[in-house]
Design a protein around this nucleic acid. Structure first.
Length: 568
RNA sequence: CGGGGUGUGGCGCAGCUUGGUAGCGCGCCCGCUUUGGGUGCGGGAGGUCCCCGGUUCAAAUCCGGGCACCCCGACCA
């Protein structure tokens, strides 16, 4: 029973002044969510219905892939986090109880589930196994933002697969990817599965599910033949650049005061792409190493790709390190370095063009013209460039779109099982590490993405599978009127037909009721007014596109049910 | 963590420069009115002006400290 006169749906005419993202504004205005503190939100009744519908879709698909639901605690002992090496993560909420025991708020569930696996999974006969839960996750985010999009506490479905070996992990991973595809399709979203960095989860391979929309925090790169990748890791062919011809050897030129790419390009009258940019970086770790990275002057470094290439974190080299081993900052190049042992990495975006680049001469106010990799210096080719507009994949220009991350899947392999001692006996009776995968999905982000993707100037337009209600019944009649009597009957019949119906029986004007209905975004609006009675029909409006149609009163409920089934 | 901004009734805001009994629109309550796009008229309720301290006869306003929240960046399964 959902009569608006007795329901909590606090709609607002104006968005909170500090809201920026469309989903943030609309979800607050439509009375779906309310803020409690930075990154902390309450789901109000109508919003919770959306959330629960999404949760149910996810649950059904998890069960269909053979997953078993369980529920693990959100408050967890710190010890397994120390063992896994994740206790130091800044986002991890740490707490201490009255006995001074160290605890954490789970930001995901690997530590606990792997601890369980260690004690409960003994034999290859117990495998494969997939466990999942819906549990609140806590994260001490450096910057919560955009309403419900990045919060410090949120419900997440996290699942974990346990297998015998790498091939079996691949199969579990594939099954999850397929299940996720079904979930997003059922939720009515536009989405992509993209290549991604593994981040602090660690592991061999990961994929991110991304819903394109303006409020997206990430950028995704889309190209020909289904190419899709997070901008952080994307690869593409750069737009070519015309280089001046190279002579037999580099030629030194006097370039006073040109210690930036812009000033040098201007001084020489060349495009920035004809210059080479030098990045001296130090690979971090026990065996720190200074490396010189070269990139086309008009290209940018992807820090994520560089980290992958180096196999470790890195930092900018200090001025003294640069002076010591390469040359004067601002005029660095691969030829004539003070220490010829410095490794030179060349981004492959530089290698595709004929001719010679301009590079620093390792001498103040001087550069070299006509420098060619291989001929003039030895190098390793790498791909560390951040792709950009104008690049191509398979000959077609790429597209770059902002997107919300709505799910993530990882092949963890033995990264957690080895550290937490989760092992099984194989058919030969030998003890082996368990092979794992983990898979996360956030219902709140699916809701926000749906709002972003389908809203119009009047409000939200939910995909029907996750709408808070199926039908929004608006009565324009006063209590006691014929219209009201008809509305009451329709409300009962619609509800009996299985449609979740919200009934606007408030004592309010038509404009207000229509505006609220459009803001809330229920897929079908049924209006009952004097007109309806007179014409013997109802006005039924499809929210998406605001298309109205007349439905004869006779058999109206059946017609509405039928129409509803055709909606996106 | 760096930069910028904001805290005044449920929401959106003015007032602060130049100290003097706190205001507007919307919403809310009551009555009448209106009933297919936030109708009109009348009456009314509601505020520790973020907090603490200071200056002053007097502080929303000036000074000091703190807190909260937002945006950009860094960061971010």
């Amino acid at each position: 029973m959902t009569r608006l006169s007795q329901y909590l749906l606090p709609t607002e005419r104006e968005a909170p002044a500090d809201a920026e993202a469309l989903s943030h504004k609309l979800m607050v205005r439509a009375g779906l969510v309310r803020q409690v503190g930075t990154g902390l939100w309450t789901w109000l009744p109508a919003g919770l219905r959306v959330h629960q519908k999404i949760v149910q879709i996810i649950r059904e698909e998890m069960n269909a892939l053979g997953g078993h639901e369980l529920l693990m605690p959100m408050i967890q002992p710190a010890e397994p986090w120390r063992k896994s090496g994740r206790y130091e993560i800044d986002e991890l909420f740490k707490l201490v109880d009255r006995k001074e025991t160290e605890l954490v708020l789970g930001l995901s569930g690997e530590e606990v589930v792997t601890t369980h696996a260690a004690s409960m999974i003994r034999s290859y006969r117990d495998l494969p196994l997939t466990l999942y839960q819906f549990q609140v996750k806590g994260r001490d985010e450096p910057r919560p933002r955009a309403g419900i999009l990045r919060t410090r506490e949120f419900l997440m479905k996290d699942s974990y697969s346990f297998d015998r070996d790498a091939d079996a992990v691949d199969a579990s991973y594939r099954r999850h990817a397929d299940a996720y595809a079904k979930m997003y399709d059922r939720c009515g979203l536009r989405w992509y599965l993209v290549d991604a960095d593994v981040g602090y989860m660690g592991g061999r391979e990961s994929g991110e599910f991304m819903a394109p929309c303006p409020a997206g925090e990430d950028d995704i790169v889309l190209g020909a033949n289904g190419y899709a990748a997070n901008l952080e890791v994307a690869s593409a062919e750069p737009a070519p650049v015309t280089l001046p011809p190279s002579g037999d050897a580099p030629e030194e030129v006097h370039t006073p005061g040109t210690n930036t790419i812009e000033s040098l390009a201007e001084f020489l009258g060349l495009p920035q792409g004809a210059l080479s940019k030098a990045f001296p970086v130090v690979r971090q770790g026990d065996d720190e190493e200074l490396v010189l990275l070269l990139l086309r002057g008009d290209h940018r470094v992807s820090e994520v790709k560089l980290r992958t290439v180096l196999g470790a974190g890195f930092r900018q080299a200090s001025a003294s390190e640069i002076e010591d081993k390469i040359g004067p900052p601002g005029f660095l190049g691969p030829v004539g370095m003070r220490d010829s042992q410095v490794r030179v990495l060349v981004d492959q975006g530089m290698l595709a063009n004929e001719g010679g680049y301009v590079a620093g001469a390792n001498r103040t106010d001087h550069h070299l013209r006509g420098v060619q990799a291989g001929r003039d210096f030895t190098y390793e080719a790498v791909d560390v460039r951040q792709v950009g507009p104008g690049d191509t994949v398979g000959g077609e220009p790429i597209q770059i779109e902002p997107a919300i991350e709505i799910g993530n899947i990882f092949k963890l392999d033995t990264r957690y099982s080895a550290k937490l001692g989760a092992r099984y006996l194989d058919p030969d009776g030998k003890s082996q590490d368990l092979w794992m995968g983990c898979y996360g999905i956030g219902p709140a982000r699916i809701a926000a993405a749906a709002v972003e993707q389908f809203a119009d100037e009047k409000g939200i337009s939910w995909p029907r599978a996750i709408a808070p209600f199926d039908v929004h019944l608006v009565t324009l009649g006063k209590p006691g009127s014929d219209e009201r009597e008809l509305s009451e009957r329709l409300y009962a019949e619609l509800t009996a037909s299985g449609l979740d119906t919200i009934y606007d029986d408030r004592d309010a004007g038509p404009g207000e009721k229509f505006a609220d209905a459009e803001l809330l975004g229920v897929p079908l609006r049924v209006t009952v007014g004097r007109r309806s009675i007179a014409a013997g029909e109802l006005e039924v409006q499809i929210r998406r596109g605001a298309v109205a149609q007349a439905v004869p009163l006779d058999g109206a409920v059946e017609a509405i049910v039928k129409l509803w089934r055709t909606l996106p």
